[in-house]
Design a protein around this nucleic acid. Structure first.
Lengths: 225, 225
DNA sequence: GCGGCACTGATTGGATACAAAATCCACTTG
DNA sequence: CAAGTGGATTTTGTATCCAATCAGTGCCGC
């Protein structure tokens, strides 16, 4: 197996990525090289290498000679991400479902119960994806799943907890429960349809709330200017 | 509009990316920092920043303390890329087709004629994507198209011209011609099916040839060892 | 012969210092 | 008050030094 010894740069990348995904660094936050360097106790060289890497990952945008910002996706971009997920994930489920065995279902159940009483937003987000990924595993498309994971995480960080859970944990859990039950019944057609709705309808609610929140922010910005 | 003044790092990224896509730098090639620095007349810092960026883009893999290599996709990864394209591109076409107007068709025709007598592989690859992108434009999913473009380019560089055109330019052109004609007839169903076949069947041929070539390379490597 | 072992040379990874370029902002000046 | 000026700040790039690591080499004992 591939063993990658940790260099300072990769550690910086991991730290910053975790902070961005966790919301500790919100979109639009300035990332000053000197500040990060002193805070993390390293020189500016690995910081700069890390920023370039994160830029290529889409988590950071660099404006030459003006610094790096935590990037933010437009509402259009977010919409497209969810449309892509809605196109690919039901397809993965269709490929996977015939080969899912009891062990896979056990794992999915376990993740579902963990998800039910997970209050930490960051953990919840990761667990939520793990649940999805678990039922796609038997599709044997690891790189496709990995691509979707990145899209999922990069989209989700834009929704503050207030928006993310506006529908209530209970409703979320019910949807997952239904999905898993349909899988257990090997009802491919309905499982696919339910998953597609889960993604699309859920995203529409999220994005509508985010649109309202951003409009509100713009108004108060205009008022203060 | 956003004007990005060119920093040395971004120029290095552009140069290396172009070389990788063009095949001037083939998969597995070692990228030595000092060598690149002296060749391009810059210091090692921007080289390293560029390498980290290209690594995040998936064009380069860095092995700590051993240097960077031009990355290569496995046959499985290539297969998955084409499956993703086959899932998303017909869908984009479906969204786009009802809104395609004469100007769009004109542009597609122009690209098709350019494609017909383009012998330069690099240009052909770019033009080929431009043709695809042109018929997806009215889907108004620019970020999705951009994602697919990256996947397309990153996959295509793995096929040497001998493989890429093994089916003959004429056959390629005929397929594109048929696709465009189906679009002109607004026959969404058949256009989608044709596009999906174009992607999937084409990829199967390419990948089968690449598998044979890699197996051959492995054999001769084993023989020489 | 053959598997370890230390030494060596080359390369990457990182720190530091400094210079150059570009942005921002406050201030002056006409 | 518009326009431009100049300095402070930050990023960008270079140069230099050093540590860590890896690949290869040859020696050694068996």
């Amino acid at each position: 197996m591939e063993i990658r010894r940790k260099t300072t740069t990769t550690q910086v990348v991991d730290i910053l990525r975790a902070r961005i995904f966790s919301g500790a660094l919100q979109e639009g936050t300035q990332l000053r090289q000197e500040h990060l360097a002193t805070e993390l106790g390293v020189s500016r060289v690995p910081i700069r290498e890390a920023l370039h890497q994160l830029e290529a990952e889409g988590l950071v945008t660099m404006h030459t000679h003006r610094g790096a910002l935590v990037s933010s996706l437009s509402l259009d971009e977010l919409t497209e991400v969810y449309e892509i997920r809605a196109r690919l994930e039901p397809w993965l489920l269709e490929l996977s479902l015939p080969h899912i065995d009891d062990a896979d279902f056990e794992e999915a159940e376990l993740l579902l119960t963990k998800l039910a009483d997970e209050k930490n937003n960051q953990h919840w987000t990761a667990l939520n994806w793990d649940f999805h990924a678990a039922i796609y595993r038997q599709a044997r498309r690891p790189h496709t799943v990995e691509l979707l994971r990145k899209l999922y995480l990069n989209a989700y960080r834009h929704f503050p907890p207030s928006i993310r859970f506006a529908g209530g944990h209970a409703h979320m859990h019910a949807e997952h429960r239904t999905l898993l039950d349909l899988c257990r019944q090997r009802d491919i057609t309905r499982a696919k349809a339910h998953l597609e709705d889960h993604i699309l309808i859920g995203s529409r609610n999220l994005i509508a709330r985010l649109r309202a929140e951003r409009a509100e922010a713009d108004r108060s910005f205009a008022a203060s200017a």
